[in-house]
Design a protein around this nucleic acid. Structure first.
Length: 935
DNA sequence: ACTTGGACTTAGGACGATAAGA
DNA sequence: TCTTATCGTCCTAAGTCCAAGT
């Protein structure tokens, strides 16, 4: 205990499982690596405190906590990171000769104890990290730093007690606002809690009642009408059912204004019914019979999702169309004939020849393995003489013929006349029409993904071990249909059967099947604009808003538990801190056959680097293998805890939170608020942040300006949630172009000034500042080049015009103009050339417009300045946003009522912030929030 | 307790449509 | 008017979380 080696007790306590079986991999076999002791000895904390104090000398830690100094994952690096990613644990095995823990202990201790002032823990690769950090961030870096300074200066004590984190730059103002809110929140807390519990108690109960009284869940799952495999069997009332349905429903769906639009009959009857039955709000016109569920919040328990459901099933992809005989895979240079099944698979790959997948070794290996198997199963390849050809090596396969064919086809399709295209589209639309909508509780609702996913090659993201495998064609026999009782079942394709037909109204899906790659279940569900989805979206945001009432208590609790003696509690508290401040995802465990990505609970040793005195550097791949990179100062206790959680014998590959998983975490959260889980924090913090950001926007300026400010707020949220996108391939060239364009404008401005000088040369001295060279283009060579370019451009213009005129002439049967005419015209450019020459010599430009005055020119310059500024800010925004995806947070995390509030309050048209589908999706928000609405 | 299954939300990229610009 | 950049939608993979099964 008294040992100065603070990791000794830990190492002893958890023992690196000395028992034989797994000595070689002892640290890793249980998937979590070493488990830390269940209690944290006082000595450990003491040591941690001491170390920390030593490090933190005259360093004001704590008050800057939660605001990342560096975030943004840099894409190029990300790509490297992906490629380099180590497997779960390989590093250990290679570097540390397994079971003797001396080397481990030693290694750790050195970095740990010795250079406390710089790097506390360094995994073997802290250098790359540091470098990366330095290299990658430029602008954000400095911006955030500035913000941090401000925040530090403010010395705001409560930084960690109530700010819901933030990646935002202006931490200071933010805290002020939040403090106020927190105070109020505290007062209200007790009462709110009571109310909440009460409400939820009722909810709960009713849920239970429901399920108890009804059939037990399991029975419900596969209830009533089993069998059916096929067409109608029990719906004798084939004809009228929709209408009937609509009636019956509108009764049941207490709040529903029954509507049926699917066919005329239904409409008529349904309408009549609706008018009679739901009088309260039923006073709407027949046409826009919309179901405004948000207007009467009938409390539903949520287990039953519908009463009646009618739909037309799913749309299967078209059958495979064989390639023309002359388009073949070549093997070792020889064209081979493939059985249809194999040809189709080869074609999948042929389609992707110019994507990055085609060069991904995992992808090609997986593809080839499946291809070989399918080829074998289907009879094998043959050459043109009918002789069998064994396809053994991927490298000898040549898909270029296929690829060329596909490209040509696509091209041909593109070149169809617009009439033909229209016809094709019309046909497609017609085929899809009946799948577009369903009838849910008598209302017409949009179906989302009614198309069965076509076969192809699985495009797993990141380093997915199964990427490239063949995703098989889904047969009707695999598809289960879920539909209301007693309505016609959509017929399976001729000669086929459904896997099953069920009538489960506790789920929202219309059809389901299992996909062959990962065994995942796929569903056909309603569209995001449907009432069903809308209601749950609404509930999601209401839940997040409810968290407001509990957040203070939750933060206080985990703040306390950060010092808990119980390891499990302390880990949980620390994880909650991260989830709350950094908006990390929960981080469920993943299998070996998935990409190695993590979230909070699944963070491993190598994902976190600690830097004294309070900096935690996160670097890991999150959902979709998107890199999460942040250097965040944390409050001292969190820093100390992370050190403890990383202590020996833990090493690369070991879990940081070895005594925590998502289900424990969520179970704990339930105690605070029913339905509270880790993801609610993301919603809460995103919406909260958005609200704070919007509140800072001055209500002035143009719509364009206000919209830009909105987007900035949106961006803050996107950064918080780490929503990224890859920079488009053309980004770089686009930026260069933009830069050139701006310089061109600057040159135009220069010429305006030179016109002034032409008029009044004496001004050059009198207004020296005004006429001093624009540093951006103060480069003779560039100007010369640019002038050349302008001349070329002018010539090109003339030529083009000339050609066009000739073409037209030819069309009209007139004779073309002579080349001499072109030459004549080109002479005009000579004038420009001369102009430039004179300009370069005298530094002045003769105004072309008559009556040019200094005043007029000055006005033009001013306009030019505006133009330049506009272009520059545009370019800057584009550059700044190149890796940030705004859409995800707008669609999933930011309470749409905030946007509605903003638009109403700031007089920004809603169309600006919500495109059509979003307006539909968020209709409930558009109609329920006003300019005072608060999250 | 732990694992698996199931249902639903969240996610980035592909791709087609549309608007803006040469 | 054609091309090109941007926008909006579609697609489906990849998460979360709860509950049932062992």
């Amino acid at each position: 205990m008294s040992s100065s080696e603070d990791d000794v007790p830990l190492a002893m306590l958890n023992g690196r499982r000395t028992n034989g079986t797994s000595s070689a991999t002892s640290a890793s076999t249980n998937g979590k690596g070493p488990i830390l002791p269940d209690r944290i000895p006082k000595s450990v904390d003491k040591k941690a405190d001491k170390d920390f104090d030593a490090m933190a000398v005259d360093y004001p830690t704590g008050d800057r906590a939660g605001v990342p100094i560096v975030n943004i994952a840099v894409r190029e690096e990300l790509d490297n990171g992906r490629a380099k990613r180590k497997g779960r644990k390989p590093a250990i095995k290679e570097e540390s000769s397994d079971d003797s823990d001396t080397p481990l202990t030693k290694r750790r201790r050195t970095s740990n104890g010795v250079k406390a002032s710089t790097i506390v823990e360094s995994s073997d690769d802290d250098v790359p990290l540091a470098k990366r950090a330095a290299a990658s961030k430029t602008r954000t870096n400095s911006a955030s730093k500035a913000a941090n300074k401000k925040a530090a200066a403010a010395k705001d004590e409560s930084s960690d007690s109530d700010t819901p984190l933030a990646t935002m730059k202006l931490a200071k103002e933010k805290r002020k606002i939040e403090n106020k809110a927190a105070a109020t929140a505290k007062e209200l807390r007790a009462e709110d809690k009571k109310a909440a519990i009460k409400a939820n108690g009722i909810k709960r109960k009713s849920v239970k009642d429901e399920s108890d009284s009804d059939v037990p869940l399991k029975a419900k799952r596969k209830p009533v009408v089993k069998k059916t495999n096929g067409v109608k069997q029990e719906s004798s009332d084939d004809d009228v059912p929709l209408a009937k349905k609509a009636k019956a429903i509108s009764k049941n769906a207490a709040t529903a204004k029954g509507k049926a639009v699917d066919n005329k009959k239904a409409v008529v009857k349904g309408k009549a019914k609706a008018a009679k039955e739901d009088t309260p709000a039923g006073a709407e016109t027949a046409e826009d019979e919309e179901y405004k569920w948000w207007e009467n919040q009938a409390e539903t328990d949520g287990t039953q999702k519908w009463t009646t459901l009618e739909h037309n099933g799913v749309l299967f992809p078209p059958a495979y169309e064989p390639l023309p005989k002359n388009v073949k895979l070549k093997y070792d240079g020889v064209p081979v004939t493939l059985p249809l099944a194999a040809e189709e698979v080869a074609g999948f790959f042929g389609h992707m020849l110019n994507s990055t997948h085609a060069t991904n070794p995992t992808f090609t290996a997986n593809f080839f393995k499946d291809f070989q198997r399918i080829l074998k199963e289907s009879g094998g390849a043959k050459d043109t003489t009918g002789k069998k050809v064994l396809i053994k090596e991927f490298a000898k396969c040549d898909f270029t013929d296929m690829n060329n064919y596909f490209v040509a086809e696509a091209e041909a399709k593109k070149n169809l006349s617009s009439a033909e295209k229209k016809a094709i589209k019309a046909e497609k639309d017609k085929a899809e029409e009946k799948y577009l909508h369903c009838l849910l509780d008598g209302r017409k609702e949009k179906v989302g993904n009614f198309r069965i996913e076509p076969p192809g090659l699985f495009r797993g993201r990141g380093e997915h071990p199964k990427t490239g495998m063949v995703k098989q064609r889904v047969q009707p026999e695999q598809v289960t249909i879920n539909i209301g009782n007693g309505v016609p079942v959509p017929p399976p394709p001729p000669g086929h059967k459904w896997a099953d037909v069920i009538h489960d109204n506790t789920v929202t899906w219309l059809a389901t099947w299992k996909e062959n790659i990962n065994g995942n279940i796929k569903y056909v569900m309603l569209a995001a604009t449907s009432s069903l989805k809308g209601m749950s979206d609404f509930k999601k945001f209401e839940k997040a808003r409810e968290l407001k009432k509990h957040i203070d208590r939750i933060r206080a609790d985990y703040g306390r538990d950060l010092k808990s003696e119980l390891m499990a509690d302390r880990q949980r508290a620390t994880a909650m801190y991260l989830i709350d401040r950094l908006a990390l995802r929960a981080g469920n465990e993943k299998g070996e056959d998935e990409a190695d990505t993590v979230g909070c609970c699944s963070l491993r040793f190598e994902h976190v680097t600690l830097k004294a005195p309070d900096l935690v550097i996160f670097d890991f791949l999150g959902k979709d293998s998107i890199r999460f990179y942040q250097e965040v100062p944390v409050i001292p206790q969190v820093f100390k805890n992370m050190r403890i959680f990383k202590k020996a014998p833990k090493t690369t590959g070991d879990m940081i939170f070895d005594r925590l998983d998502t289900s424990q975490l969520n179970k704990h959260l339930q105690n605070y608020m029913p339905g509270l889980s880790a993801k609610v924090f993301r919603t809460y913090n995103a919406s909260w942040t958005m609200q704070q950001q919007l509140a800072k926007i001055p209500n002035e300026g143009s719509i364009h300006d206000k919209y830009a400010a909105y987007n900035e707020a949106n961006k803050a949220v996107a950064i918080l949630c780490n929503h990224q996108r890859t920079v488009s391939a053309s980004h770089e060239t686009m930026m260069l172009k933009a830069e050139e364009k701006i310089k061109a404008l600057r040159y135009q401005k220069l010429r305006l000034k030179r016109q002034i000088l032409f008029l009044k040369p004496e001004l050059k001295k009198k207004r020296a500042a005004f006429f001093k060279p624009d540093p951006e283009i103060d480069d003779k060579n560039w100007i010369l080049e640019h002038q050349k370019f302008l001349i070329e451009q002018e010539k090109e213009k003339i030529r083009k015009k000339f050609e066009k005129e000739n073409e037209k002439a030819a069309e009209n049967g007139e004779k073309e103009q002579k080349p001499s005419e072109l030459k004549e015209r080109l002479k005009a450019v000579g004038e420009l050339e001369a102009e430039f020459k004179a300009e370069n010599k005298t530094g002045a430009v003769e105004p072309k417009t008559k009556g040019a005055t200094v005043e007029k020119l000055e006005a033009q310059i001013e306009k030019m300045d505006e133009k330049i500024l506009k272009q520059e800010t545009e370019a800057k925004v584009r550059e700044d946003n190149k890796t940030v995806a705004l859409g995800t947070s707008k669609i999933n995390y930011i309470d749409p009522r905030l946007s509605v509030m903003f638009c109403k309050k700031y007089d920004v048209p809603i169309e600006k912030v919500f495109a059509k589908t979003l307006r539909e999706k968020f209709k409930w928000a558009l109609e329920s929030a006003d300019e005072d609405w608060e999250f």
